[in-house]
């Protein structure tokens, strides 16, 4: 369950660079995951390669081999990484696909519960040991959970979405016990998603403040990291809730 990243060197021989990239991408696309590539040239740029790249968003750069000798190689790889992570999120859940899922879940883009979940995720996730792929999964989880309840067949063409959110939505089904939020036997991404869901349900029922107070009761340096970090953002969460109510 991984994205592919393929570096192909142009050598003017058969099979072509494009064919090599397409062939190596197949095992990834078969599992629902995108793959990305960088083409490396030894000589002058090829117009046909540029034309092909224009129609294939998977190839993110076309560089001269000398760039690998440069001291800026780490910057180059970092720029590729940024492109890969943002494109992966778009490809796994394109905005238009997200809109369709929202419609199927009979929600609106402005659904307060979804909005709170998304905003709380943005605040809390950077504080915790959560990878970019897990962050995508957490943001998608409430929507996927709703769609799986109502029309699971809608998700069958999107195995990657189901795979990355499976563990989280599983815990949503089991009505995760919020007292287990510090239990390290459960992945931090799953616990975080369940905590944010718990808070968004509390927000929807008007009990956010008391729920936060209960979670943060007896807070100390010994408390689980997720609770300590929640404490550092609790005022912002209450603000979001207040502003939403005022709007």
């Amino acid at each position: 369950m991984r994205c592919g990243f393929i570096i192909v060197v142009e050598d003017s021989q058969q099979p072509s660079t494009q064919q090599i990239f397409q062939n190596l991408s197949k095992p990834y696309s078969a599992t629902g995951w995108p793959s990305f590539g960088v083409f490396v040239r030894n000589g002058v740029e090829s117009i046909s390669t540029y034309k092909w790249m224009a129609g294939n968003s998977g190839v993110i750069d076309y560089v001269h081999a000398e760039e690998f000798e440069s001291s800026k190689i780490s910057d180059l790889f970092y720029s590729w990484w940024l492109k890969v992570s943002s494109k992966t999120e778009d490809l796994i859940c394109h905005p238009s696909l997200k809109e369709s899922l929202i419609a199927v879940a009979s929600k609106s883009n402005a659904d307060p519960q979804l909005l709170f979940f998304d905003q709380a995720s943005s605040i809390l996730l950077p504080k915790l040991n959560i990878s970019w792929k897990e962050a995508i999964a957490i943001r998608l989880a409430p929507l996927v959970f709703e769609v799986m309840e109502s029309s699971p067949e809608i998700l069958s063409p999107h195995p990657a979405i189901v795979k990355i959110t499976r563990e989280i939505t599983g815990c949503f089904h089991e009505n995760f016990d919020i007292r287990g939020v510090g239990n390290k036997d459960i992945a931090i991404a799953v616990r975080t998603a369940c905590l944010i869901r718990y808070l968004s349900l509390a927000n929807a029922s008007g009990n956010l403040e008391s729920s936060l107070a209960s979670l943060l009761d007896n807070l100390s340096p010994r408390s689980p990291a997720i609770i300590r970090q929640l404490s550092s953002v609790s005022d912002r969460l209450l603000n979001i809730s207040e502003r939403a109510k005022a709007a």
Binding site: K127, K184, P224, A225, I226, Q229
Partner: peptide, 10 residues
């Protein structure tokens, strides 16, 4: 440190 944190706070 608590490995649940992105960076250790203590």
């Amino acid at each position: 440190y608590d490995t649940d944190e992105a960076e250790p706070s203590c």
